[in-house]
């Protein structure tokens, strides 16, 4: 496998980075990077870590990183995660409380510990922490429950002071959304599977309205909504498909993610598993309670419409 870290890869401009990943020969991983500058979203680092984790450290080749900003990869724990040496001497530039380094979460207990002990290290206000722990909890639980990923979820986050936003990346190398959704619904493509997974009330565990006693199929819809109402980026990459919620467009909530202002692609290299990246603007975070009102409205309407669509029509002869 080959992965190249460009000078810039955030959710808004991540597509070329994804297109250039080479997944051939999964016994080896070659990491190269822009020689002058590397500035990447945590989701990119989570992806590199997830790809490299099963590879023997001796089979991971990391080209000498010359970019001035390469120490960031070291601070985020990438080389420690991969079991390789970077040759970079870290200068302590980043003050504490700006990032959550790459962390592997394999089960419910580790997730609870992460939420209780690690997220507070970001030193944010309670109203800012609510959406972050919500997003992390729901996404990582999806991985634990549905992905069957041997490496669990690989999580990392970064706070950007200038834009006052937090960027979160949660990645797994499990079944992927299509296989999970296909257990209950027909999705012929990875993109269609992502679309279904984002619609409230649709879960791979059952076709029954209301879900099972354990799953409702609402988690991803909630997270997309948090991003949408705050005009933040949100992306899901699974199989060969990418869905990206764009920052622009109205705040009106839609049950169908394709009705939101978005970009999509279904011709990317095949990612076995699921990659989720989300940005949360902390200065513009809409009150969580307002957001819940919106969700309640849309959720109810969606279920009513879905029930109505199943009504049998009377035959008039």
């Amino acid at each position: 496998m080959k992965i190249h870290l460009p000078n810039s890869a955030f959710i808004g401009n991540i597509d070329p980075f994804l297109k250039n990943i080479d997944f051939s020969d999964n016994q080896k991983l070659e990491i190269t990077a822009n020689q002058n500058w590397i500035a990447v979203h945590p989701v990119v680092l989570s992806m590199v870590a997830a790809l490299g984790f099963p590879v023997k450290p001796k089979n991971i080749i990391c080209k000498t990183l010359t970019a001035k900003s390469a120490h960031y990869l070291q601070r985020m724990g990438l080389f420690k995660f991969l079991g390789t040496e970077s040759g970079i001497n870290v200068e302590e530039h980043e003050p504490a409380g700006r990032f959550i380094p790459l962390t592997q979460i394999k089960n419910s207990e580790e997730l609870s510990y992460f939420i209780k002990e690690i997220i507070p290290l970001l030193h944010l206000q309670p109203f800012q922490v609510d959406p972050i722990r919500y997003v992390v909890s729901e996404l990582v639980r999806n991985v634990i429950e549905h992905a069957a990923s041997q490496t669990g979820a690989i999580v990392s986050a970064q706070y950007y002071k200038k834009s006052n936003r937090i960027a979160i990346g949660i990645v797994d190398t499990g079944l992927g959304i299509k296989k999970t959704i296909n257990q209950s619904y027909v999705a012929n493509t990875h993109l269609e599977a992502i679309r279904l997974a984002l619609i409230p009330g649709i879960t791979g565990t059952t076709k029954r309205e209301g879900g099972t006693e354990y799953n409702a199929g609402a988690g991803l819809f909630f997270i997309k909504t948090i991003a949408k109402v705050n005009h933040d980026f949100f992306m899901i990459y699974s199989g060969n498909a990418l869905y990206k919620l764009l920052k622009t467009g109205s705040s009106k909530l839609h049950a169908d993610p394709f009705d939101d202002n978005h970009s999509k692609s279904d011709s990317l290299p095949l990612w076995n598993g699921t990659v989720v990246g989300v940005d949360i603007s902390l200065s513009e975070t809409k009150e969580f309670s307002e957001l819940l009102d919106l969700i309640r409205d849309v959720y109810s309407k969606t279920i009513k419409e879905r029930r109505k669509a199943r009504y049998k029509k009377p035959k008039f002869i």
């Binding site: 209301g210 609402a218 819940l292 309640r296």
Partner: peptide
């Protein structure tokens, strides 16, 4: 308030279903 709203979302969609 938020916990109440989460409870209402769940009770709504379960009753509608």
């Amino acid at each position: 308030e938020n916990v109440q709203k989460i409870i209402m979302i769940v009770t709504d969609y379960m009753q509608e279903g």
